[in-house]
Design a protein around this nucleic acid. Structure first.
Length: 116
DNA sequence: CATCTGACGACCG
DNA sequence: GCGGTCGCCAGAT
């Protein structure tokens, strides 16, 4: 499968901003949904300058396997991305491929789901 | 060819 | 908020 379009978008994520697998999948209309985005990232070729660390779970949750999780947090924090208890503050850093910066501060539907 | 396994996210109780 | 299931589907075994 060609994940080029995925990498292409990821590569466009500005420094200090992040994208979620779901948003990525929906934007590109990937068959298989968010998980497809996850597969794409898991297959990300290293050393290609792809900012894989800027892709996180739906609520800013870091989902990468342990070896990378710490690195990812470190990289994000190094570019000024703020965290709230192991979660990226999407409210201020979520980016949109379509060019929808709108950070906003009013949380609308941020109260549900699990994951620990 | 048959199974298993996820770098997800939606739902349910 | 927490734990568990389900749909999806490309690779790995």
């Amino acid at each position: 499968m060609s994940w080029k379009p995925v990498y292409d978008v990821v590569q466009r994520i500005p420094r200090g901003r992040v994208l979620t697998y779901g948003a990525l999948a929906r934007f590109l209309r990937l068959p298989g949904g968010a998980r497809a985005a996850g597969r794409a990232m898991a297959a990300t070729p290293n050393g290609k300058g792809i900012p894989w660390h800027r892709v996180v779970g739906e609520r800013g949750r870091i989902l990468t396997p342990e070896p990378y999780a710490s690195l990812q947090r470190r990289l994000l924090q190094s570019e000024r991305v703020t965290f709230i208890e192991f979660r990226v503050d999407l409210n201020n850093h979520l980016w949109s491929p379509a060019g929808k910066p709108s950070p906003q501060k009013t949380k609308k539907k941020v109260t549900r789901r699990r994951n620990s």
